[in-house]
Design a protein around this nucleic acid. Structure first.
Lengths: 130, 130
DNA sequence: CGGGATTTTGCGAATAGTTCGCAAATGAGG
DNA sequence: CCTCATTTGCGAACTATTCGCAAAATCCCG
């Protein structure tokens, strides 16, 4: 009976490796370009399918950028945290913050609003870009 | 000499009126459908152009939804605040919160990160949907 | 209220990002 | 090394959004 398989293939390894070395959100097209630069010939379709696959496994986080283009980054959603995104270079730094969590909790109480999640992003310039 | 004009037209009034009565983020297509329902025949191009126009005036806020489709809502960005979005009906409630601002400020100090902005969204169920 | 300069609209075509179908290639396991 | 399920590549299809241009609407001023 078909228990879903999960093949390890070159394209998947290459794509994961691109994501692994870039601490920023990349679009499918950017990943595809990165593969070409590395001399790895992978179709854009496969990039999209692999990204869906990685997302399904919970290995990457997707986020539409300001223009609506979807971008992806290696990021365990298990350990809850937020992001600080550099406006200049796009570098993403994790912001793990108990105070923020606590604040969100307190909001749950107020408002007739049953809070079950939140998304927080900080923008600015990272140390290197200042 | 051409100081930019700003014509008041039926399409623009109709579109603004749709936005004015919906406390949630709507896509261009949804707005277009709303216009048709009202018997107002406006082209989709005009919907997009009017949304750009309103955004330029600072009358509406745009936000790509989870799938990357851009959605719009009447919302003065002048008074800084955040949103609580109902997972069931999409209703958006404003969350004006000094504590959050203060928290963001404190983050500016830590990290080598020069914070110049942030985006916060809360998700859950509004009173009506619980 | 009428005329003319300027802006806006509608339409259809063009673009960009993403998905899909299907045959060929690849990985897992015996 | 053989077989079978999964994955890939390709090109076509789709969807959201933008654009060019001629026609229509708006504004302003007399």
């Amino acid at each position: 009976m078909g228990l879903r398989a999960d093949y390890v293939t070159r394209p998947r390894e290459w794509i994961a490796s691109i994501l692994a070395r870039e601490p920023r959100f990349l679009s499918a097209a950017q990943i595809h370009q990165g593969l070409e630069r590395d001399g790895a010939r992978v179709s854009l379709s496969t990039v999209y399918r692999t990204l869906d696959h990685l997302q399904g496994k919970g290995d990457i986080t997707a986020r539409p950028d300001a223009d609506g283009e979807v971008t992806y980054m290696l990021c365990e959603p298990s350990r809850h945290h937020h992001h600080a995104i550099c406006r200049t270079c796009g570098r993403v730094e994790d912001v793990d913050c108990a105070a923020m969590e606590q604040f969100a909790e307190s909001l749950r109480a107020r408002n007739g609003f049953e809070l079950d999640g939140h998304a927080i992003e900080f923008f600015g310039k990272c140390g290197a870009c200042r």
